[in-house]
Design a protein around this nucleic acid. Structure first.
Length: 157
DNA sequence: GCCAACGTTGGC
DNA sequence: GCCAACGTTGGC
């Protein structure tokens, strides 16, 4: 079992949207970055867990935990000209983009902010806290995962 | 709203 | 294959 972190803008698709979906499950569609695509297509497995991170909001941070409930499969939004994530280069017979399904496991008791993650020496190696990071899907080491969960029960800054 | 960082595209 | 131009991400 692996651990991940997945970013989304709460105005576009946040944890409240996920909570309202049938089965609290939703395809993680629209990812158009090859590194993120490769991880979803090749590495994510059913049962893996991921932090749900809210980006482009004040303050950005981790708000919940989701489980990967379906492994990588073609992102059909790339085939639909009406869809904002349409990509004419993705052929249904040879899809360029992939997605997974995520199911809400639980919300965190409080948002663990990016500032807080940055302040922790044990998390300094996380790609999330490094300058210029733009990857929307990234692996999280098990010790980092546990360290972040431990923060949940501490007071915020 | 700004803009630094970074990924992608395409001319050469 | 290089790299300038361009588009996007995402913190601030």
């Amino acid at each position: 079992m692996r651990y991940w972190l997945m970013k989304s803008e709460p105005d576009v698709f946040g944890i409240d949207h996920l909570a309202e979906r049938p089965g609290q499950t939703e395809p993680w569609d629209g990812v158009r970055n090859y590194q993120a695509r490769n991880m979803m297509r090749d590495q994510m497995q059913v049962g893996d867990q991921a932090f749900f991170y809210h980006s482009n909001t004040k303050p950005p941070g981790i708000v919940g935990i989701v489980e990967i409930s379906r492994a990588g499969y073609p992102d059909h939004t790339a085939f639909d000209p009406e869809d904002p994530h349409f990509d004419p280069r993705s052929d249904p017979d040879k899809p360029r983009w992939f997605m997974v399904d995520v199911t809400l496991q639980r919300r965190l008791k409080r948002k663990i902010t990016l500032d807080e993650l940055k302040s922790r020496p044990e998390l300094a190696d996380m790609r999330l806290v490094q300058k210029g990071n733009r990857l929307s899907v990234m692996p999280v080491e098990e010790d980092e995962w546990q360290a972040i969960l431990a923060l949940e029960n501490e007071h915020g800054e």
